[in-house]
Design a protein around this nucleic acid. Structure first.
Lengths: 138, 138
DNA sequence: CAGCATCCGCTATGATACTG
DNA sequence: CAGTATCATAGCGGATGCTG
């Protein structure tokens, strides 16, 4: 029962977390992991360091430019490192930082929720969309 | 120790979750909670049902249009409900669904992580930005 | 009160080509 | 190999005004 109260109490604090606690910073973090490629990159780097081209191939659809942009943003936030090896074909390796690894837990929780509920969400979307234009077929 | 192995095992699965498990659906959910206003709205509705104008006032900076768009998207995914009361000033109430409430947990985990680590992230950004243009002042 | 319609600028994303 | 530079585009987000 104290468990239930704890959860209740914690959830009640979400309003404070979301609103009073600087929504901009909050969103900037969500923007980072919520953009088109970051989460994929994090998912890949979670398994170990990777080179630029490896990431390029492992992330279907991404362009060089967007991969660069994504990696820079993650590096800027201290979530990954970028290590240049001065060799004669250049080699650059990206790897998760400690901070990045601590993010994996929360992201995984969200990923699991998404996997568990994507059917329900998709069904809701279909239902919602179906109830909108039942007049055009005539 | 089996705990550590379990975590390890779980994290290893993130790659699969992120990549093999339909990245588009994944991103569409992240887009939903990652856009500019959804998380704020969810945070507010977590505390109980609210009317349109209440949400408008409780979400500083949002326009009517974006609030409407946000609410529709959340409704479409089945995360909130929209109830119209046919009264003579119209009244519309938004409330979390069961599905929406199950999302609160994962979001809270992420929110807590953000709150706990925003200082580190901000510091990393400052450091990164400082190390980029040390040649222009000259 | 609770929207919808319209216009409009900005940024994110992407295609393509070039460089150290 | 690992990027950068340039150009083009689409959609988000916002300002404003109208409606049931």
């Amino acid at each position: 029962m104290s468990q239930a109260i704890l959860v209740e109490e914690t959830l009640r604090s979400m309003g404070k977390l979301c609103i009073e606690h600087d929504p901009d910073v909050f969103r900037s973090v969500l923007d980072r992991i919520g953009d088109k490629w970051s989460l994929l990159v994090i998912g890949i780097l979670e398994a170990g360091p990777r080179r630029f081209t490896e990431l390029l191939r492992a992330t279907p659809g991404v362009s060089r430019k967007m991969l660069t942009t994504t990696l820079r943003a993650l590096e800027r936030d201290g979530l990954i490192t970028r290590t240049i090896y001065p060799e004669v074909p250049p080699r650059v390796e990206y790897a998760m930082t400690e901070l990045g690894r601590t993010l994996s837990g929360p992201v995984l929780v969200l990923a699991t929720w998404t996997a568990d509920n994507q059917e329900a969400i998709l069904a809701n979307r279909d239902g919602f969309d179906a109830g909108l234009q039942p007049e055009s077929p005539a």
